[in-house]
Amino acid sequence: MSNVALAQALEMSCPIVITDFSRNTNDRKIFKSISKYTTPLTDASVQFEIESQNTPMVFNAEFAITIAGDKQLRISLDNPSGSGNQNSRRVYIDKFSLKSPDSSTVISLEGEDLITAGGVAVDHDGSTAGGTNNDNDVITWAFSSGYLEIPVSLVQPGIYQITIHAYGNTLSDGISPLLSASINNLAPSSGSGGEILIKNQLRELHTTFLGEELAIDSEELEASYQVFVTTWQKRWESDADFNVQASSEETCTALEGMTFNDDDLIDPQHMLATWSRMMLFFMTDYRFLHE
């Protein structure tokens, strides 16, 4: 019965994804060229380790933007909890700015002005993530889960400079908060860098699992990508917590001889949950089962 294959895939699909993404990039067996933070909207992304615990530090990075247009600047906390100490990591955004290739300022904003400037702070259930904070007259937007986002208009392709002034609280394990800043497209099928990376990964999965060599613009690959996008969007719409085990309806248990720590299961962009379901999709495919 087909349930035999389904049982096997249900048990293994999530652990396979978690295990592979927890490896160093060069040691991965499956997801060799994509980050677990890359979403269908992601056009470009950078990540910072917020080591400072008391006062804001300056973090700089560059985005390579190939297609200009209206976008969203998103700042996400990538490891909101860990070691069972829920929501203990915390990031304080003092201010941030984005400069265009010609060094003009696209946006420059104090953290506490995020909402009034038209931005949002969103937690997993759609509620506001965090709020203003005042530490010794340093006023910030502090949040321990979710993301901050504000619209930006990028008038030309090229290298953009992001600067974030922030500090954070670590957990007792000493692991600092990880903050990612990304330029997101407004729709998942708009040719973003994330869309291309995800399609390439899906194409590789079609080859590896199903023995199919698909062109990047093939109908079959597009169909798989749409399954991916729909799955990811439904995950967001479900208000699930940023964890692959967000409820008793989900289990992701390390297989024999392996262990997962809490940070392995954290899923701030719902991408681990989405890739797990895609793994289920591939592992129960007719062509995977019939060698």
Binding site: A223, S224, R277, T284, D285
Partner: peptide, 23 residues
């Protein structure tokens, strides 16, 4: 416990049926 929610599982099976119908 479940591995995945019933809705998620149904979504994947539905998507796969559509693919199988194609191939």
């Amino acid at each position: 416990r479940n591995y995945y929610s019933k809705n998620d599982l149904n979504d994947i099976i539905t998507a796969q049926q559509e693919r199988l119908a194609r191939i």
